[in-house]
């Protein structure tokens, strides 16, 4: 199918990009990897009148650690994360996600930041960013600001990015040696969005109790959600199967999925619960704590 016609802008600098966005307001859309936008345009579900292609912007492809944060520039592709040895060894949650987003070919183009900006109710990166307590860097005419992921993700397909702004970076805290995570996703086949998925991250105290926990679930509500009560239950406790069961059970209270071809609301809720449980068990196992 053929997208509707649009005006194409190819800024060569961030300033130029921002000025295009400012000029055209909500008629303009950032074009990053295009892996969500272009299919939507082919179905004419999206018909932006101006596209601002950011792919030629310099210095947005960085992926490195700095001040305890993994900084992911707006042009970092999923595969950059997937193939990165440092990420594979240290950032278990992110590494897991990078292998199950979309399909291997789509991942060569799709960007982490673009996925977060898209805030698809079934997006994988959003759940991971929630669990890992990521931050977003947003650039506008008058400079940049940093927001927590919870502030950034506003509603389905909506973020806190304002008119004339774009996201330039996502930041994930660098896990210490007592931190691990996991991503558990049920999909009907490769390339499908999640039926349900859960991102978890756990930081242990040296005494083996849980210092901090992050739980994000996706595809089971209007957008990816933080399982706050589940996190609260875990914090400060010694990990046991009963505790994990109880934390996972919290999912049921906040998940509110739409029934569709991927499953009934009941099924999706139950899967989110199972996946949170499995994620926690896996993350703990990665920290050499066996609970099951």
């Amino acid at each position: 199918m053929i997208p509707a016609a649009f005006e194409y802008k190819r800024p060569m600098s961030l300033e130029e990009a921002i000025s295009h966005l400012a000029e055209h307001g909500y008629d303009a859309r950032v074009l990053a990897g295009g892996q969500s936008l272009i299919p939507a345009m082919r179905y004419r579900l999206a018909q932006p009148s101006v596209l601002v292609d950011i792919n030629k912007l310099p210095n947005l492809g960085y992926l490195h650690e700095e001040n305890g944060m993994l900084r992911i520039g707006a042009l970092v592709r999923d595969t950059d994360v997937e193939f990165n040895k440092n990420i594979q060894s240290k950032y278990h949650l992110i590494s897991d996600v990078s292998m199950v987003v979309a399909d291997p070919i789509v991942r060569f183009r799709g960007t982490v930041v673009g996925s977060l900006c898209h805030n698809d109710p079934s997006g994988d990166w959003a759940a991971a960013a929630i669990a890992a307590r990521a931050q977003m860097v947003i650039q506008g005419k008058n400079g940049s600001r940093v927001e927590s992921i919870d502030q950034f993700l506003v509603d389905s397909f909506a973020t806190s990015i304002g008119e004339g702004e774009m996201a330039v970076e996502a930041r994930f805290p660098t896990p210490n040696s007592l931190t691990s995570g996991a991503y558990e996703k049920i999909e009907r086949k490769v390339g499908d969005y999640a039926t349900a998925a859960a991102a978890v991250q756990i930081e242990l105290n040296p005494d083996g109790t849980i210092k901090e926990a992050g739980i994000g679930i996706t595809a089971v509500a209007h957008m990816a959600l933080r399982v706050v009560e589940g996190e609260n239950l875990l914090r400060g406790q010694k990990p046991t199967l009963e505790l994990i069961r109880a934390a996972a059970e919290e999912v049921r209270k906040i998940a509110d999925p739409n029934p569709d071809a991927r499953g009934s609301a009941e099924y999706k809720k139950d899967m989110a619960r199972v996946l949170v449980g499995r994620g926690l068990i896996k993350a703990l196992r990665r920290l050499n704590v066996v609970v099951a």
């Binding site: 086949k189 490769v190 390339g191 499908d192």
Partner: peptide, 10 residues
């Protein structure tokens, strides 16, 4: 995306 054909992995 709705009519599902298996990939090599499934």
């Amino acid at each position: 995306t709705d009519y599902l054909l298996p990939t090599a992995l499934e």
